[in-house]
């Protein structure tokens, strides 16, 4: 009866990591909540949140950031969907190297990519500002939209399309009634992967607009850097809630499997 004892032992191998996860994942998140409801003396308060609502500037930045994030996400769908569709069709695009070329920029440092965008705008003598911000965001996050959509389209059973065609559907009908509905899981996970980083980004906006336009992420970072930990934590908590709300669209599993799928 050696085996059961051994399996008990192996199960125990998860203990160090469980402790690690508690200290470095669970506890820090709890601290955000604790700090958010405290004033600088450590007394319980709601003032951080009332300050956010009454403070015109942070409320405006918040709304503006959500607007930018929505525009970025929509543009990524608009440009990314056709690309993902073409890449997934063997008759239109044979080589798998193309997919790799689209994924590659995901693995280059986001600051290097942003600097490259700034370089492009300088090179073309275009002004930095809102246009550069949106271009930079779409440029940075487009691969994160293409990849999940490509993944779902590629896994789609081709028999459905053939069946629709055999039953007399026009190409437009085939797309709108079969292909598009089946690719919606890919779009939702793409939305997650684009919307979330755009709403939380901070350094990119600074570099792309010469610090003229502030996004919500920048405000959060500035507060933390300036020692306003409680207000910063409250803003982080608001950001976290927005993200949780978007995450309800998605079960979360998709995103993880999509990110891991590259390997």
């Amino acid at each position: 009866m050696k085996l059961p004892r051994l399996f008990t032992k192996r199960r125990h191998w998860s203990i160090p990591y469980a402790i690690f996860l508690f200290i470095f994942v669970a506890l820090p998140l709890l601290l955000i909540v604790v700090y958010a409801f405290q004033d600088s003396e450590g007394n319980f308060t709601f003032s951080n949140f009332t300050r956010f609502i009454t403070n015109q500037e942070s409320a405006n930045t918040f709304v503006y950031s959500i607007g930018i994030a929505i525009i970025t996400t929509l543009l990524c769908i608009l440009f990314g969907y056709p690309a993902a569709y073409i890449l997934s069709r063997k008759d239109l695009c044979r080589s798998s190297v193309m997919v790799l070329l689209f994924i590659l920029p995901m693995w280059i440092n986001i600051l290097v990519r942003t600097l490259a965008t700034v370089a492009l705008f300088d090179f073309l003598h275009l002004p930095l500002g809102e246009g550069a911000l949106i271009f930079g965001m779409v440029y940075n996050f487009l691969p994160f939209m293409i990849y999940p959509i490509y993944n779902t389209l590629q896994k789609m059973d081709y028999n459905y399309i053939e069946a629709a065609q055999d039953l007399g559907a026009s190409p437009i009908k085939v797309f709108s009634k079969v292909v598009f509905p089946l690719s919606i899981p890919g779009i939702t996970s793409g939305i997650m992967m684009v919307f979330m980083p755009t709403i939380s980004t901070f350094a990119i906006s600074e570099l792309l607009t010469m610090n003229n336009i502030k996004l919500f992420g920048t405000v959060v970072q500035e507060n933390i850097n300036n020692g306003m930990w409680n207000y910063g934590a409250a803003l982080s908590l608001i950001m976290l809630l927005i993200i949780l709300a978007t995450e309800l669209f998605n079960d979360g599993e998709d995103r993880v499997s999509n990110e891991g799928g590259i390997i």
């Binding site: 200290i23 470095f24 506890l27 820090p28 998140l29 601290l31 955000i32 700090y35 979330m196 980083p197 709403i199 939380s200 980004t201 901070f202 992420g217 959060v220 970072q221 933390i224 930990w229 910063g232 934590a233 982080s236 950001m239 976290l240 993200i243």
Partner: peptide, 12 residues
């Protein structure tokens, strides 16, 4: 998002 991971660890 990275910023949340960063801030939560900073607070820790």
């Amino acid at each position: 998002p990275d910023i949340i991971t960063g801030i939560s660890l900073f607070l820790l």
